[in-house]
Amino acid sequence: MLISNLEILPNSRIVRHIGLVQGSSVRSKHVGRDIMASFKNIFGGELQGYTELLHESREEATERLIEQAKSVGANAVINVRYSTSSIAAGAAEIFVYGTAVELEPA
């Protein structure tokens, strides 16, 4: 499955546009992590727990996007965009969307 945020694939031809596919994931950390984070807020620096959380969350959302693209018979998703929004304290929604297309078999 080709995932790209470009719209142009120089060496392959798009046979069919299928439409928008998406994947999302809402996650939060347990309270212990939040307490650790508030300590970090005094000293500053990277919050590694949150970096990992959001990274995993993004991977899951992409996984769901791929699943959906497969289910509609696509073999590539182009023009992929990510978007993040914080839903509540300590929880964030990761949303990923793109255009599912069918490429000519190479």
């Binding site: 984070a37 970090k40 807020n41 005094i42 000293f43 500053g44 620096g45 990277e46 919050l47 590694q48 949150y50 970096t51 959001l54 990274h55 993004r58 990510y82």
Partner: peptide, 10 residues
């Protein structure tokens, strides 16, 4: 992709 969360200090 690459991501990072940085906290502000007091």
């Amino acid at each position: 992709s690459g991501n990072v969360v940085v906290a502000s200090d007091y």
